[in-house]
């Protein structure tokens, strides 16, 4: 059984059809890269899987660990282990990163019938995981994402991922706007979180993040559907040749 199984998915937002019959299978323990030009539907897929209310499913199905994902509310999906690293994390003024994250971690623990972490236990674990992305403890006391640089926001997303230990992690353009150091920190953070139980879907424009995180499979999305799937080599080919040749190939096969 796949961790995530997307079948014939058609999705619209504000009346515009964005995804047109998308198919995707992701096994536990695998890292898949999803590449595509602007407007091809990458972020739509990410936000839809996370349960954003603006995205409407017209047709198709999504199953997650054998359950109907589309039947679950966004917060329930998260507690069941679906994590989205946001392309644009929002600011929450006055709410410290630590306070917020402790609430999130404990919501998941309650859901699984585990004891909640107290402040001391939480801090011990948080300190450990902060090292993963090269940040220090002062971070926990800052208002969530408020005044964070682009790199800090993305490191913070990966830090949250480490703390929440998801089964399915979707990284939506986590590499955009990062300098080389932040890119390395994010890359090594993600690699440390690759486990046999966890599946990851890494959405990106460029191949450069995939220099640090080598995917098991690469998919190219265009016009709201997967037009080509391959191994890590496909990402390099896209980097060299662009998307044009895939468009022509897709058009030829459609004809």
């Amino acid at each position: 059984m796949s961790l995530l199984s997307v079948k014939d998915l058609h999705v619209s937002v504000a009346g515009n059809r964005i995804l047109n019959g998308l198919e995707l299978e992701l096994e536990a323990g695998q890292v898949h890269a999803l590449m595509g030009p602007n407007g091809s539907g990458k972020s739509t897929l990410a936000l839809l899987l996370a349960g954003h209310p603006a995205y409407k499913v017209e047709k198709g199905s999504v199953s997650y660990q054998g359950r109907d994902l589309l039947d679950m509310a966004a917060d329930e999906r998260a507690r069941e282990g679906v994590f989205l690293s946001f392309q644009y994390p929002v600011e929450i003024p006055g709410v410290s990163t630590g306070y917020f994250l402790k609430a999130a971690v404990n919501a998941g623990r309650r859901h699984r019938g585990e004891d909640e972490l107290d402040a001391m236990d939480f801090l011990d674990i948080a300190r450990e995981q902060l090292k993963l992305v090269g940040m220090d403890e002062a971070f926990l006391h800052r208002s969530l994402n408020e005044g964070f640089s682009g790199g800090e926001k993305k490191r913070c997303e990966i830090f949250q991922m480490a703390m929440l230990e998801p089964r399915l992690a979707i990284l939506d353009e986590t590499d955009s706007g990062l300098d080389v150091d932040a890119l390395k920190a994010v890359g090594s953070g993600v690699n440390a979180l690759r486990t046999p139980e966890r599946g990851m879907l890494i959405i990106t424009h460029y191949q450069r993040l995939l220099d640090y995180i080598v995917p098991d499979r690469t998919h190219v999305i265009m016009g709201g559907r997967i037009v080509r799937s391959g191994d890590a080599e496909l990402a390099r080919e896209v980097e060299q040749r662009g998307y044009g040749w895939l468009e022509e190939a897709a058009a030829a096969s459609a004809a």
């Binding site: 996370a50 349960g51 954003h52 209310p53 509310a73 966004a74 917060d75 999906r77 998260a78 507690r79 994590f83 989205l84 946001f86 994390p89 929002v90 929450i92 003024p93 006055g94 709410v95 306070y99 917020f100 994250l101 609430a103 999130a104 919501a107 998941g108 859901h111 208002s143 949250q160 929440l164």
Partner: peptide, 22 residues
Amino acid sequence: FYLAQRGISEEDAVSIIVNGFC
């Protein structure tokens, strides 16, 4: 939505945001 995506219920999310504001 951001708070929901981290597993926090809507009622708790509102309370967290309001307390931050205050």
